[in-house]
Design a protein around this nucleic acid. Structure first.
Lengths: 167, 167
DNA sequence: ATCATTGCAAACCGTTTGCAGCCTT
DNA sequence: AAGGCTGCAAACGGTTTGCAATGAT
């Protein structure tokens, strides 16, 4: 899951925005502010691309902060349940922190999970989130064609980000 | 992976079509006609919904045909490599036999893997495959919006099939 | 003081690898 | 006869569970 070619860390402001939002959400749900959660949220905030539980453990170790792998799994589970990380379909165990506003804030009802989709760069492992207005009609088409009632859809793109495209 | 509510087996003709096609493909590639392959292909042919390696092993056991789990993995790998089964994104380890013509036969270049997508019924585990002409524009939109070059996309629908919708 | 959360150990599950022997071609 | 394919054993990696100890509120 670790990126092969380097990927610039997020601008400080965006990073701070994420941690602030994360703590706001957790606090609102009565969840406690613990050291492992702090370390993991901070790590996610600095990362643009996908990570995994073991990646995060290694990141923390580099900072001389140790967290048990089990705890990391549980924290990620908690963050996912609160809309603070995505799980990637195409990379088992892969997670990305959510960059776009959560579904509380935006009201595209397209997806039962998050109303946006993910582009992953095959080269630098960067991730970009995207609202896809075209998905609605696509679902309508699928329903008409198949007779199914579509409850959820999973859509993920893989390719090259603008920087890596030019290499 | 085993279906909860019953799902009618495929019509005999469709089932025979699949086995015939499978053997044709395998023979063409110089692959051998072995007992485990026969059992697995037959099992897949009778199944409409998704299965897994262990599901297949159990199916074979019920028919008093034993195949090692490792062999089943290897046969599935082989069938996938030859376009005879899909792997499901949303159900790790899940596979479905391909119902639609393979990409040799149709020429939608939309997906690097298969040019069709999958609808899974959450209730009966049935699966339907679908061509999605709308995906092209969606990719174009994603590329324009993000600056990415999209190489592959993954799209899967989950919902209720026509029968289960009315329950 | 209470109860959520952590850490450790161990189980668990699906999947993969190495290798000897078998069976299709 | 040759070598693709199978079966067995064992390793593997990621994920989960149980339980006692810790620590946030």
């Amino acid at each position: 899951m670790s990126s092969s070619c380097s990927h610039a860390p997020v601008a400080v402001t965006a990073s701070q925005e994420y941690t602030a939002k994360a703590w706001a959400v957790l606090k609102q749900r009565g969840l406690r502010q613990t050291e492992p959660r702090k370390q993991i949220i901070d790590a996610l905030a600095e990362l643009l691309g996908p990570t995994s539980a073991y990646d995060l453990r290694d990141m923390l170790l580099e900072r001389h902060k140790k967290a048990d792998i089990v705890t990391i799994y549980r924290v990620l589970e908690c963050l996912e349940a609160n809309g603070l990380v995505h799980r990637l379909l195409t990379r088992p165990g892969g997670v990305v922190r959510c960059q776009l506003p959560s579904e509380d804030e935006c009201h595209h009802a397209e997806s039962s999970h998050h109303c946006h989709h993910v582009l992953v760069c095959q080269c630098c492992n960067g991730v970009q989130e995207l609202h896809c207005p075209g998905v609605g009609p696509l679902i309508a088409y699928a329903e008409k064609e198949s007779g199914y009632t579509v409850q959820t859809h999973y859509l993920e793109f893989a390719g090259l980000c603008p920087q890596c495209s030019t290499l």
